[in-house]
Deep mutational scan, measured.
Amino acid sequence: MFYPNSPQTSPQLTQIPYGQQYAMMQRQIQQPYHPFATTEPQARLYPYHYQGPIQQEQGGFITQQSTAASPQYVQMRVTPVDQSIMSGYPNQTANGSSSSSFNYNIHPQQQQQQQQQQQQLRHHAMPVGSVPLQDDRYRKQLIVNYLAPDVTSTDLHELFSRFGELDGARIIYDKQTNMSKGYGFVYFCHAEDAKEAVERMSGYEFHGKWLKVGYSTNPLNIVPSNSSPYVHAGSRGAAG
């Protein structure tokens, strides 16, 4: 039997160049792979992502010199942007860049009308829970959420009447099932009393439920100042 490094198959040491006398086997001759043993700084910083320098080929596509990437890492192929796409944008300079302001050559009167329309939209648009300043009635009506099913309009009136005089209180019921929808409205005579009720009743436990109280901004629920107070009856038909 002959071994790869046996004296019968191995040459004389004098015939082997210096430095390879003890590297006779194939696994010894093959050098191990060192990912950080390279002179390129990109490979030292990113050993798993770097795959060699990027070269520009004919046709405008950018390719990489090395083989496919590892399945664990996804390499994105980048193509140059066609400058003709950006030619339609206004205020574009000769080098292809555009300024931040756009001039669509709008007539001054049209621009003024658009600004007025935007101001009107901001004036009428009102986020949930906010209180408008032009109508004091919005500051007097509250919406009470997360009410228990057994709470009546009379219970709601008695709960909030300790903060001040009320114009009314009612629970909203479903017309088909005649069941409470879980929320109601309270109408105060003074805005200061309503503000105190919002601050003190939010998070209050009532009939096993934690109440959420806020201003009601729905104009359909506003009680006119010259109208008669609501009837605080315990029956659902009268309260709904």
Rank of each mutant, 00 (worst) to 15 (best):
Q92M: 08
H123A: 11
H190V: 08
Y33H: 14
Q55V: 13
S6W: 05
A68L: 11
Y146T: 04
V231Y: 13
Q141A: 01
Y215W: 15
R162M: 02
G60D: 11
Y18S: 10
P90K: 08
K195S: 06
V231L: 04
K181S: 04
N5F: 06
K181R: 09
L159C: 04
F36S: 12
T154M: 08
G129D: 05
Q111G: 02
G52C: 08
M76C: 12
Y18P: 08
F61S: 04
L133G: 04
T152P: 10
A125D: 11
S202E: 11
P47Y: 15
V198I: 06
W210S: 06
V74E: 05
Q64S: 08
A233H: 15
L159Q: 14
E192F: 06
I222Q: 05
N145K: 09
G240E: 14
N91M: 10
Y138W: 00
F163H: 14
D155W: 00
G203A: 06
A233P: 13
Q55A: 07
R139G: 06
A125T: 04
N5S: 12
Q15R: 04
A43Y: 06
P7T: 08
C189D: 01
L13F: 06
P53V: 05
V128Y: 12
Q115V: 07
A233L: 02
P229C: 09
N218Y: 02
S153G: 01
D82A: 14
A94T: 10
L121M: 11
Y187R: 00
N221A: 10
A23F: 12
P4H: 04
Q109N: 04
H34W: 15
H157W: 01
G19V: 10
T217H: 06
Y22W: 14
H157S: 06
N95F: 15
D135A: 11
G88C: 11
D193I: 12
Q119H: 05
R137Y: 01
L156I: 04
Q15M: 05
Q51C: 13
P4L: 09
N95I: 06
S84I: 11
T177H: 15
G88W: 08
S84Y: 12
A197I: 12
Y187H: 00
H123D: 06
G19D: 14
V81P: 02
G182P: 02
P71T: 10
R162V: 03
Q20F: 14
V74Y: 00
H107S: 01
Q31S: 11
H157Q: 15
F185L: 09
Q55K: 10
E205Y: 00
Q8K: 00
Q28D: 14
P127N: 10
F36D: 04
H124F: 01
I106H: 04
P219T: 05
T63Y: 10
R162T: 12
P4K: 12
S161V: 10
S84W: 14
Q31E: 15
S97F: 03
A169E: 14
P11V: 08
S70E: 01
T63N: 12
Q20M: 13
R162A: 11
I171E: 08
H107C: 07
I62E: 14
V186C: 04
Q51P: 03
A69G: 12
K195E: 01
R77W: 15
S180P: 07
F36A: 09
G184I: 05
Y183M: 00
N221V: 06
E205R: 07
M86S: 09
S101E: 11
G19S: 05
Q20G: 04
P53Q: 09
G237E: 13
Q31V: 12
P11H: 14
N105C: 12
Y183V: 03
Q65D: 15
A239S: 11
R122F: 13
A197P: 08
H107N: 12
P219Y: 05
D135L: 00
V144C: 02
V78W: 14
N91Q: 11
M25S: 09
E196I: 12
Y230M: 09
S10Q: 10
L156C: 14
S161F: 00
Y146V: 01
H207C: 10
M201L: 02
Q12Y: 02
G234H: 10
D155I: 08
N103G: 03
A23G: 08
R170I: 14
S130I: 07
Y138V: 15
L45R: 02
V131R: 03
T39W: 00
P35F: 10
T63D: 00
I16G: 01
S100D: 01
E158F: 08
M25T: 11
L159M: 11
Y48L: 06
G59I: 11
P149T: 03
V131W: 01
Q116K: 14
F206Y: 03
A37F: 07
G19R: 10
R236S: 04
E205G: 07
S161K: 03
N95Y: 13
G129R: 04
A238H: 01
